[in-house]
């Protein structure tokens, strides 16, 4: 990370864009999925912290687009285009979607991690954006940080430390 770089923070159900020398980070992904989409040539990247698989799940009128895999990824691609990214050059790295609890419940909320991962993959495929690296599933929380210069995604977990994909 460059010493002049700042960290752009993405909250839960939030998205943002980053250019070098800055990096972009989201913390404490559990069942949520962090999706990074970037155009290496245009030196621009975006990250969305997806909480739910599908905006059809929304039960009230107003929709926070960044919350859902479908609307979040669409919105991120639209923002990247405005920043000069070319859709055919876009690539993705994804992390998260853990299954942290095994609650013996019929409630589908608790399988939300795998459902989020599935929805994100499907959405990226719809846009023909290749997933060049992923670290999904498991039962640990993750904090992720993407550097748009090196295009490396650093993943930190409580038990296994940090690694880069």
């Amino acid at each position: 990370m460059s010493s002049t770089g700042q960290i752009v923070k993405v909250g839960i159900a939030d998205l943002n864009i980053v250019r070098p020398p800055h990096v972009i980070r989201t913390s404490g992904l559990g069942s949520c999925v962090g999706v990074v989409i970037y155009d290496e040539r245009a030196s621009v990247a975006g990250m969305v912290h997806v909480m739910l698989p599908d905006s059809a799940l929304a039960k009230s009128g107003h929709i926070n687009k960044a919350k859902y895999a479908d609307t979040g990824i669409n919105e991120l691609i639209a923002l990247l285009k405005l920043e000069g990214a070319q859709v055919y050059r876009l690539k993705a790295k994804i992390a998260g979607g853990a299954q942290m609890f095994q609650f013996s419940s019929q409630n589908s909320s608790f399988k939300i991690g795998p459902r989020n991962v599935e929805a994100v993959k499907q959405m990226l495929q719809t846009h023909h954006i290749p997933i060049v690296a992923e670290d999904v599933g498991g039962n640990s929380g993750r904090t992720i940080e993407f550097d748009p210069h090196s295009c490396e995604l650093q993943i930190r977990t409580v038990n296994k430390g940090s690694h880069i994909i």
Partner: peptide, 16 residues
């Protein structure tokens, strides 16, 4: 584990 990763399970229903 990380607090955010844990507590977010409690937000899934509200988030709809």
């Amino acid at each position: 584990d990380m607090f955010g990763a844990i507590i977010s399970y409690g937000l899934v229903e509200s988030s709809q």
